[in-house]
Design a protein around this nucleic acid. Sequence first.
DNA 1: CTTGCCTCTGACGTCAGCGTCAGGTTTTAG
DNA 2: CTAAAACCTGACGCTGACGTCAGAGGCAAG
Lengths: 125, 125
Amino acid sequence: MSVTPDSTERLIRIGEVARGAGVSVRAVRYYEQQGLLTPERSPSGQRLYRQDAIAMVRFFQQMYAAGLTSRRITELLPCWEAGHTDADQRAMLRVERERIQAKIDELEAARDRLDQVIAITDTHP
Amino acid sequence: MSVTPDSTERLIRIGEVARGAGVSVRAVRYYEQQGLLTPERSPSGQRLYRQDAIAMVRFFQQMYAAGLTSRRITELLPCWEAGHTDADQRAMLRVERERIQAKIDELEAARDRLDQVIAITDTHP
DNA sequence: CTTGCCTCTGACGTCAGCGTCAGGTTTTAG
DNA sequence: CTAAAACCTGACGCTGACGTCAGAGGCAAG
C-alpha cells in the first residue's frame, strides 16, 4: 500500500478490478459509494482504476470479514494510505484490534465446544 | 446438556430466562419461533421453561456468534439433546467446525495486518 | 454497420436476528 | 382491591453488504 500515483500507469476498468479481486462489479461500485475508492472517469463516464485498486479491494474484503464496517474502514484509510495518523485513529486501530481478538476467543470457545460434541458422538454413534 | 426432564422441577417464565442468559425477551420468543426452544404453557398461555433453558440460550448465543444460523442449530440439536446422531449430523458438525476454524484463520490474518499498521503508526506518529 | 460484451445510473429486493410499537391479558406486590 | 410489572399475539422496522432488474450508452471485431 501507500503506492505513489504514477501518471504513466495503465488504468483498468471496473470489470478487471472485480475479476482480479474476486468480487462482483456491484461490490466495487458499492465501495466507491462508501468512499473507499475514488476512481477517475473516462470522458464517457466509465470508471478507471489504478492497478493497486485490486489489492485495496482484497484488503477491504479482509476487513469486512473481520467485522469492520465500511465507515470504520474509511476512517482508518489514512493510516496506511498517507502513513500519517492522529491519536484518534491510532486509538481506533487498537479498538478494532481488540474487537477482532475478542471475536477470535469467542470462535475458539465455540470450536472447542463443537469438538467436545464431536468426540462424544464419535464414541457413541 | 442432555438433562433428564424432571417433573418436580421448578419452571420459570420468559423474563427469568432472558435475564439469566443476558438476552432480550424478544430473542427468547424468536428462538421458539425458530424451533430452538419448545416451552410448556401455563393454563393462561404463558411460556414455562425448565431451568436448563438458560444454559441452552447461552449456547445458542455462542453458536450464533460463531456464525451458525438458527436452522443449522436446530439441525444439530439432537446431537447433544439425545446423544443420538446419524452420519449426516456428524458430517454437519465437522463442516461447521471447519467453517469456524477457517474464520479464526481469517481473523488472525486481519489482526496481524492491523498489528503491522499499529507498529508503523506508532514509530511514525 | 452491427453484433456482442462491457459499462452506466437509479432503485427496489434480500437475509437474519432481533427491536419496537400497539393493544390487550395475567400475575404479583402492597 | 388496585396499580405496577410481566406476559401475550401480531406485525412492521432496522442494519449492511451487496443481488438484481430496467433501460440506455460505449467500444473493439468482423
